[in-house]
Structure formats: structure tokens, C-alpha cells
Simulated assay, not measured.
Amino acid sequence: MSFSFAPLTGSKPERYAQLLAQVRALLHDERDRIANAANLSALVYHALPDLNWVGFYFFDGTELVVGPFQGLPACVRIPLDKGVCGAAARTRQTQRVDDVHAFPGHIACDSASRSELVVPLYRGDTLIGVFDLDSPLPARFDADDQHGLEAVAAAFLESIACA
């Protein structure tokens, strides 16, 4: 594997373009979903500031089950009708929440989390899971973060396309 982590520089869109290039290099030629989710979680957790949790929940046919992540221990199972992760999976739309405590049905896995961004992972009509990021800062995520992290999630889905 020829991967080298480099600090991100420039404007926020430029930093996300650099992160996406690092993600693609990291995931290149690997098709295992767990391995890629683990490495991707670590990369994003260490590359982006002000995050306290980055990881995946995978759909088991009934609910979301925690997968590889970085951060404190997490809720193990999330029903599709609960929390920000459930809303992303259910609506097929990225959820960007400035104040998780104001989100109806929020699940407080880590009481330090104040804002959250969750990208649903679908292949066609099939729910794979969600890519979840939490921050201890309110309103940590903006439109640039959303677009950048949706591109990262798409690269993850591409990496496991043949799996």
C-alpha cells in the first residue's frame, strides 16, 4: 500500500479535494467493506478538526448496527425510526444538524456531541448504512462540509462496489 497522510491546506473546498484524493489513495485496490470503513474513519477523524466521533453504521436488514469508528464507545443498534442516523437512512438524505439536542428523537450516545452530519449509504435501492460524524461544537458542519463528506462517502461506496 502506498498511502501517505498529509495535512490539509487552503480553503475548505481545497481541503476537501485533498481529503478526497487521500481517501481514494487509501481505498485503492481494497474491496473489503470493514477494512475500508476502518481506515476511512481513522483518516477523516485525524484529518478534520473539531470531531469527537467518525464512523459507520451498517444496515443488517432490520436496524443500523455500529461498524468501524473512531471516538468513544457508541450506541450499538439504532432503529430506522430513531435519531439522526435513522433519519438519514429512512429519508435517503444527508442530515446536517446544528444542535442535536433540538433534533426530535436524538439518541445521545456521547453527551459531548453538539452537532452531527450523517450521510446515507445506498447502492440503488439497497440501504448499506450511514457515515456518521459528530462534533462537540454546535453548528460545526456547513454546506462545504456536507458536499465534501458526501463525496468521501461516495468514494467509500465505489471502493466496495465489487464486494
Rank of each mutant, 00 (worst) to 15 (best):
I160P: 04
P104W: 05
H46C: 13
I160R: 10
C162V: 13
R33Q: 10
E116C: 11
T62G: 14
R140L: 07
C109M: 10
V130N: 02
A154G: 11
A153Y: 03
P68R: 06
L43S: 01
Q22F: 05
S2I: 12
L121P: 03
G10E: 11
E30M: 11
Y45L: 10
G148F: 03
E116I: 07
P120D: 11
H28G: 12
P49E: 05
G61N: 15
E150A: 13
R96G: 02
A112I: 15
A108W: 08
V118P: 00
A88Y: 02
L121A: 05
R140Q: 12
D81Q: 08
L51Q: 09
G148L: 07
R31L: 13
K12S: 07
F156R: 06
A151R: 08
C109Q: 05
F5G: 06
E63N: 13
S113G: 10
D110Y: 01
A89S: 13
L48R: 03
S11N: 06
A155F: 00
S115A: 12
N52S: 03
Y57V: 08
G10W: 09
F3Y: 15
G124N: 11
L40D: 00
V66T: 10
P79M: 13
V44A: 08
A161W: 10
F156E: 01
L19Y: 03
D144P: 11
R77N: 14
R92H: 09
A151E: 07
Y16M: 04
L26D: 02
E30D: 13
G86S: 10
D81I: 07
R123K: 10
S159C: 12
T94W: 03
R123P: 00
P73S: 11
R114S: 03
T94A: 14
D145T: 00
A155K: 01
H46E: 11
F56V: 01
G129F: 03
A88E: 03
S41T: 06
W53D: 02
I34A: 15
F69D: 00
V84G: 00
R15Y: 02
S135C: 06
D50T: 09
G124S: 07
I160T: 07
Q70H: 12
A154T: 09
R15T: 02
A112G: 14
H46L: 15
S4V: 15
Y45A: 14
T9H: 14
L64E: 02
H147E: 13
E116G: 05
D142H: 10
F59S: 02
L43V: 00
R31Q: 11
T91W: 09
I34Q: 15
I34E: 15
I34C: 13
P79S: 15
F131Q: 04
F56C: 03
H101P: 00
M1F: 12
G148K: 01
L40S: 02
F59P: 07
I107M: 06
V54Q: 04
E63Q: 15
R92I: 06
E150C: 12
Q70Y: 09
L72M: 12
